[in-house]
Design a protein around this nucleic acid. Structure first.
Length: 420
RNA sequence: AAUCAGCAGGACAUUAGG
């Protein structure tokens, strides 16, 4: 049983839950009854892949075999329904746990609280905190971080700070996660100085910033164009034996790329390699985007090919960036060939890809092709958005077809979109 | 051996100050 649970866990970690499921069936066939850990591990695998249906199926199956789900099993299912925004279902599960005398714990509550917060329902989150207190379950560090994050995302830094105070009066010492959340909140509101001050105050509070905390601040500084200070924090983290990672370098590469400073971006890319890091698809996509934006599609392709050579798989965004770059440069044949390449790899083009192509064709006055792609996306169930319409309308206007442009303009509000 | 929190990438204007 032990070994099987480990094997199943391994498959789940690689997002291969279906294979884990088959393994479990094979176990049963040779007369080995999977234990509750094996089941729970697999249920978690399905939930992580967003396949809540299979997760519940497995739960029913384990119950049929006389194996009782425990708190972890339930918590995982609760997470699954929360992710889908089914908060009423989460409540049902919570009630079911109480009835099954499988007492909800702090993780159960934290999970549901986060669900409500993601649904922008802070009040429900607070009610749950009351409820957990009544059940003698104390909010812990995670509970507070979830609440503070919710408030920060709402732009309510004031309340976030008072919750911070509150947790301190309850005897909880905020950790690096809590402060990183607050730093991110300040940065989102453009309060870079405040974010820096918070960061600097950590040492006197006896908190050691970790890699994520440094990354957060560095990203904020880079986005604010303060590359010098960002770099000094990069040195600081290295000297503290905190290894910079893709996130860290991504911040620098992104900022330089956006500013059209591709030599600097490349420099950071090389620095990553020197440190033994293997840049992921995000880093490559950032570089490709940068080269495209400086009008150098040849270099963009060369980066694209080097990522392929290193075995890094381009994702939809990588392709979309390339397509956009080529479209902008009027290289529609190449753009279309990248477009078919991505489909050949089993990727499904999204509204970004289509809009980029439509933009390109419209710009060249090829409204036929633009209209054709518009039709195609509709038939494939990809909803055009305001950017798609802008490109289409722009093309029609340029070619003098004002009537059709007006018609499309009318469609925009019919679709509930707002012209910008 | 299994569950909860914090960090990075893609779109609209280009002769010109959107």
């Amino acid at each position: 049983g032990f070994t099987y649970a480990t094997l199943v866990g391994g498959l789940c970690n690689q997002r291969r839950s279906m294979e884990g499921r088959k393994l479990l069936d094979e176990m049963c066939e040779i007369g080995l009854l999977p234990n509750y850990v094996t089941y729970t591990t697999l249920i978690d695998g399905f939930v992580k892949e967003g396949d809540v249906e299979h997760a519940f199926e497995l739960r029913d199956e384990m119950v049929k075999r006389g194996i009782q789900p425990n708190v972890l099993t339930y918590n995982i299912l609760v997470r699954g329904v929360c992710r889908m925004g089914k908060m009423d279902k989460a409540r049902e599960l919570l009630n079911e746990m109480v009835l099954a005398s499988c007492k909800p714990d702090v993780v159960t509550y934290n999970t549901i609280i986060e669900g409500h917060i993601q649904a922008k329902n802070i009040d429900s989150a607070y009610e749950l905190i009351e409820e957990m207190r009544k059940r003698n379950i104390s909010p812990n560090m995670v509970t507070y971080s979830v609440i503070i994050n919710g408030l920060c995302r709402n732009g309510d830094l004031q309340r976030a700070s008072s919750v911070l105070e509150e947790m301190i009066t309850f005897g909880l010492k905020p950790n690096a996660v809590i402060y990183t959340t607050l730093i991110t909140g300040n940065l989102r509101e453009g309060k870079v100085d405040e974010a820096c001050e918070l960061f600097k105050s950590l040492t006197e509070k006896g908190i050691t910033p970790d890699v994520i905390c440094y990354n957060t601040l560095i990203t904020g500084l880079c986005k604010a164009g303060n590359m010098k200070e960002a770099r000094s924090y990069l040195f600081e983290m290295i000297s503290r034996r905190l290894p910079p990672n893709d996130f860290t370098y991504g911040a620098f590469i992104h900022a330089h790329s956006k500013a059209g400073q591709m030599l600097d971006a490349d420099q950071y890319f090389k620095e990553m390699l020197d440190r033994g890091l293997m840049p992921n698809e995000i880093i490559y996509t950032t570089l490709i985007d940068g080269h495209c934006k400086s009008g150098n599609t040849a270099e963009a392709f060369s980066v694209f090919h080097s990522m392929l050579g290193k075995g890094v798989l381009p994702d939809l965004k990588t392709y979309s960036v390339l397509i956009h770059g080529l479209s902008k440069a009027g290289k529609m044949q190449e753009a279309m060939s990248v477009f078919s390449e991505l489909q050949g790899k089993g990727l499904i083009p999204d509204v970004f890809c289509y809009s980029a192509l439509i933009f390109g064709f419209s710009k060249l006055g090829d409204i036929e092709k633009a209209a054709q792609l518009h039709k195609e996306m509709n038939s494939k169930g990809v909803d055009p958005n305001i950017f798609t319409y802008n490109a289409l309308i722009d093309g029609l206007c340029k070619s003098g077809d004002i009537e059709k442009a007006k018609d499309l303009f009318g469609d925009v509000s019919k679709k509930g979109l707002v012209p910008n």
